[in-house]
């Protein structure tokens, strides 16, 4: 088991317009002026992102995940896990703040674009390492993050300690456990020899207690 923290950078994943609109609270179809505005926003921010991930392997015997049921379920039968932290950088936070002053609609769209960017980065990273490990006969399970189900947000501190996030990818944690840049994710992925996937909720919504969430997909 390697305890080195590795860093990877990625090219921009393709923009998923449907997801951006969903994050912006637009659950139906967008009209022309919204599409135009979104197009402007994407053109303006396309270049500002930097897609960085730092990660390391974690042995199953390390008492990292505590007694969280969510973690147990997701790591069931796994030989080890990979923990990672991903960020798309601070520039999008600056754009959101800038437009909060002059255009709330654009600020909302930048917010949504940022959310979609970091999710897409996590997907790209997970697909990347899943491919790597598959060569060794290891299969990735669904990723999960502090704050999912009963896996406590307090675990952020341990992710940061284990991954050296500020130094590796410029990601910091506030006293109230919020990450800055805000468009960032920490998560764990289990790896197993069992190739058939267990029945899992693809979105993680099933583990979430907020039953009235507008974005809930179960």
């Amino acid at each position: 088991m390697l305890d080195t923290v590795f860093v990877k950078t990625y090219p921009a994943p393709p923009f998923n317009i449907r997801e951006i609109l969903r994050y912006a609270g637009c659950l139906g179809s967008a009209d022309e002026r919204l599409n135009t505005l979104l197009g402007e926003c994407i053109a303006e921010c396309e270049e500002v992102f930097s897609y960085r991930v730092c990660y390391r392997e974690l042995a199953p015997d390390e008492n990292f995940f505590g007694d969280s049921q969510t973690a147990k379920k997701r790591l069931d039968g796994c030989e080890f896990s990979v923990i990672f932290a991903a960020t798309v950088g601070l520039s999008i936070d600056r754009l959101i703040a800038r437009y909060a002053e002059v255009s709330t609609a654009k600020a909302l769209l930048f917010q949504a674009i940022g959310a979609e960017r970091i999710e897409s980065l996590c997907n790209a990273f997970c697909a990347d390492i899943a491919g790597e490990y598959e060569k060794r006969g290891l299969y990735a399970r669904q990723r999960f993050s502090p704050g999912y189900g009963d896996f406590p947000l307090e675990k952020q501190t341990e992710f940061f300690r284990a991954l050296d996030c500020p130094r590796k990818i410029g990601l910091t944690l506030s006293d109230s456990l919020l990450m800055s840049p805000t468009k960032s994710v920490t998560a764990a992925v289990g790896f197993t020899r069992a190739s058939e996937k267990p029945q899992e909720c693809e979105t993680g919504c099933a583990d979430c207690e907020k039953a009235d969430c507008a974005l809930r997909i179960v």
């Binding site: 609109l21 912006a24 637009c26 919204l34 769209l109």
Partner: peptide, 14 residues
């Protein structure tokens, strides 16, 4: 009434 969404609401607000 969900005939318009948040981005549109905000564009009008602006």
């Amino acid at each position: 009434e969900k005939r318009a969404y948040l981005p549109q609401l905000l564009m009008s607000a602006e």
